[in-house]
Design a protein around this nucleic acid. Structure first.
Lengths: 207, 207
DNA sequence: TGTACATCAGTGAACGCGCGTTCACTGATGTAC
DNA sequence: TGTACATCAGTGAACGCGCGTTCACTGATGTAC
């Protein structure tokens, strides 16, 4: 049985490499990440990596895939927790988005900033679509609350909210340009989505 | 006089290097950009770069600085063109943001994705703050339209719109994950900001 | 107008480095009998 | 329980490469007299 043995055989090198990669990507960006350093951090020769991955890109793709897996789970969980209120579900997925980005920065970067395409392999595409699907489902059930003649396409609404969430993460959650966030990112996203939902007519205009 | 002479002396190497860098950054991302290749594309030895820049990072910083310069000008121009309507001004700056990102992708990437800090040198910090200041001014004059008790902080509003704009650029204007944008980025930003402004009570809730 | 000379912007060779990847190998593990 | 052997997961040396940066140099330009 594989496990805690340490010797010539690592026991769980594949996952150890993914985790080393995630730590490095978080610390130095996708640019700074190198296969050799990930191997070293896992206590192994660079050549050993090739027993488990086709190469550098493949390792990043696996990190991203695991990220999408966590991400999709979190989104689904948030969605269900908000039910039966479609508004609560929608807002919860928004919060979950930001929480994911903060808690799993290495995964987030692998997914959205490493430049790897979600179509690079079927597993990755599948789980990514599961994640995005949850975002859209949340938007869809929310739109059902609106009278048909005031109902924008759900995909558009989910794109708006996704864009604002991603923008908050990139600009204010990590310190991209001047590292001076005027407000806590959580508040920024919360208020931003709040105003947006009011604009849709889903929150009463007073208060 | 410097100019069109080509021989041992380039004549305008500094700017030629910046432009080569911008083209490379646009084509390959900040990762793929190398000083040596920029030099080659300018028809010059890598060592020649050091007559004009302290090194690789400095070259990127200059590309970003020029980007902020163009960006700030465009924003100011858009703002003034929208006057005296504060709403028109605000919307125009939003459109100008996206237009800039599309028209000057190399600059945009240098500014927001290359990882260089706007505080790396005073010139850069100054022009960046000029650009951000215009965004805030647009939000401020817009907020003056609202009754005081319904007036969110201008900096927050400008952060919201900036986040959404940046998110649209990253996710839907370039093909980050699956390269499938459900809507044209211009429309996405236009409608998104429209809904947001309605939420602020700045556009009448019907229509 | 001509000459001497300082200044400047480029060359080209060299450096040390770490990268991703390959290869033949070897040590450890698991299984068949 | 013991032995032979196949399988597997690692090693370590080597590769070619392009990178950023340095250095002493040299060719071109501009200026003083």
């Amino acid at each position: 049985m594989a496990g805690k043995k340490r010797g010539y055989h690592h026991g769980n090198l594949r996952q150890a490499l993914v985790e080393a990669a995630l730590a490095l990507i978080e610390a130095k960006g996708p640019t700074g990440f190198t296969l050799s350093e990930a191997a070293k951090q896992a206590g192994v020769t660079p050549a050993a990596v090739y027993r488990h991955f086709a190469g550098r890109e493949d390792l990043i793709a696996e990190a991203a895939r695991q990220g999408y897996e966590i991400f999709a789970d979190l989104m689904e969980h948030a969605y269900e927790k908000g039910q039966p209120s479609s508004l609560a579900s929608f807002e919860a997925t928004g919060r979950a988005y930001l929480a994911f980005a903060r808690k799993f920065p290495g995964h987030y970067i692998s997914m959205f900033e490493s430049g790897i395409s979600i179509n690079r392999n079927p597993d990755l595409a599948h789980v990514a679509n599961r994640a995005f699907g949850t975002l859209e489902k949340a938007a869809e059930t929310l739109m059902a609350e609106l009278p048909e003649d005031r109902r924008p396409p759900a995909r558009m609404v989910s794109a708006h909210v996704w864009a604002m969430s991603h923008g908050v993460v990139e600009l204010f959650s990590r310190g991209s340009p001047g590292t001076k966030s005027p407000f806590p990112p959580e508040d920024l996203l919360e208020t931003g989505i709040g105003i947006y939902l009011r604009g849709l007519g889903l929150i009463r205009p007073d208060t």
